Computed example of a mutant assay.
Amino acid sequence: MSETIRVFAGDCTTTFEGARARTQRGRVAVVVKPDRTTLVHDADGYQPVAWLTRPDSLTVETDEGGFGLVARAGEQVLRVVSHESSGWVEYPVTEAGVPVGSHPDTGEPLVRAGGDVRGLDSDVRYSLPAGATVLDETCESCGLPKIRAEAGDAFEICLDRSCESLDDAVRERFDGEWTCPDCGSPLRIIRRGGRLLAGCDAYPDCETAFAIPAGVVVDDCACGLPVFETARGRRCLDATCERFEG
């Protein structure tokens, strides 16, 4: 869901108290972001003449005579007082991301920002598996973009986990494929504590479990477990394996 950004403009005196203390006056635009970050811009260049990032507190007062802002972060204080106001406005804003298509039901743009794909006009959000890429193809069932995720193999599945589950795909491919090095029981694909694991079928008598890394199986380790090719290089399924020769 979008938040709002506020913009104030006018003839203002800006006072900053702190390590870079100074007082300036001019016709400026003051931008206040949803996280309270306050930036004062004049006519020159891209850098603000004064700013305070994510202050602990922010007070904004407006009336017919103009506006005033006070932002505080520890010993730092940013004050902006208008002498003549050109006005103030409020606009909806979202986190900017890489466009990855549109929502098939609402038509709203979808963007990838960090580890999520989000809708620009709603609170729609789909979390991505580690290392996943969003594809140009769309799901035949729901119309959302498909993703490519690596978890032992490369899987192309729907962005919406309720439509196609990465867990199910990995389970179908690897459940029981590997053997517990401690007791010889099959390793089952499970999700525990928010992580996808290969856990011993003898649990709780045997508590052996390994987090499945984002990568594909390319070889066998001397310990009997698979070797994964990941973004950081090759590694055994057991990240602490002493027999792995990378």
Rank of each mutant, 00 (worst) to 15 (best):
W51D: 09
T15V: 11
G10M: 04
P109M: 09
V111F: 00
D167R: 04
E242N: 10
L144G: 01
S85Y: 10
R22A: 14
W51F: 15
A154R: 07
F67G: 02
D44R: 08
G131Y: 02
G193N: 14
R125C: 12
P213G: 06
G101T: 03
G152D: 07
P48K: 02
T53A: 13
H83K: 12
A149M: 07
V40M: 06
T59Y: 03
A151E: 05
F16G: 00
A231H: 11
L78S: 00
K33R: 15
G45Y: 07
G26T: 02
E108C: 02
E245F: 05
T59K: 10
V30G: 02
R161L: 08
C236S: 07
V124G: 06
L39A: 08
E140P: 01
R161F: 11
A130T: 12
C223M: 07
E242P: 07
G119M: 01
G176K: 04
C163F: 08
F67V: 06
G87N: 08
E75Q: 14
T106Q: 04
H103R: 06
T59A: 13
R243C: 10
K146R: 15
L120S: 05
P213N: 09
D219Y: 03
A71W: 00
S162W: 14
R27V: 14
A132Y: 02
C221P: 02
T37G: 03
C142S: 12
D63P: 03
G246Q: 13
A113Y: 12
Y46D: 15
C183T: 11
P186D: 15
T53I: 14
G114R: 04
S141E: 15
R72M: 10
A132N: 06
D153E: 15
W88C: 06
F16T: 05
A169D: 07
S102F: 02
L159H: 01
L78V: 10
D167V: 08
P181Y: 05
G199P: 01
V227C: 00
V77D: 08
